[in-house]
Amino acid sequence: MTAVVEARGLGKRYRRRWALSDCSFDLPAGRVVGLVGPNGAGKSTLLNLAVGLLRPTTGTIRVLGSEPAAGPQQLAKVGFVAQDTPTYAGLSVEEHLRLGARLNPAWDAGLARERVGRLGLDPAQKAGKLSGGQRAQLALTLGIAKRPELLLLDEPVSSLDPLARREFLQDLMEAVAEQELSVVLSSHVVSDVERACDYLVVLVDSRIEVAGDIDTLLATHYRLTGPRRDSSLPAGQHVISARHTDRQSTFLIRTDEPIHDPAWSVTELTLEDVVLAYMGRSGSGERTAAPALEAQR
């Protein structure tokens, strides 16, 4: 499995604040990667670094084997739908397609036209008059019709209502299936990621908390509930969060091995449980850091 995005010690500082610190990860090719985290965790910073709109303060990031935005070839290989799906308010849908055709040698005019027709966008309509969902669709069309190898989307559905959200993601999945794209999609809503993605990166407070295949994450994370117990768990079981009442203890753990202790009642977790567990951990300072993260790569 080759990596579409490789980061080593990647960090970005705005004046005094670190928006991203010491991130090392590989994002696999041919996947739809969900980048989740609370607002301000550094998701946009990470994607802007990947398209070269920002430059790293520390470390390196390589996208499809090259430095981001290194030249026209590199730009042609990476599609980007930026946050708030910016479009030119004064330009019509038709003119946006023309813009795409003029600026991208590999532009797929047929695909663009077909998408606009299917989505029911009026070519003569000014982008400023489109609804949020239509504008997002137009921005996605521009991103897809340039025929990139990797498509990056920064919170593409954050301003959309639930129905438009679902339609947008469904449409994205179809395009991905047709074109064998690698996709990285950021969102602060886990259900969006659950619907669309098969690989997950959780970014909290400028750091990567966990990264891995979603099926694997679900198959290795459990909730253990049983009589109160303060002592540590077996070596193979990494505690992500622990909660105790007078009588009872609840652990969220990650383990690659089966759980034999009969004292526990074991439940499987939803993706949301996993993500929230990692998010909550960062704030409470119970970070076990390196081993848990390293193992995920």
């Binding site: 070839q73 730009l75 600026l103 340039k146």
Partner: peptide, 8 residues
């Protein structure tokens, strides 16, 4: 962010 991410 739109125009600087075309192939130019």
């Amino acid at each position: 962010r739109l125009v600087w991410n075309q192939s130019t």
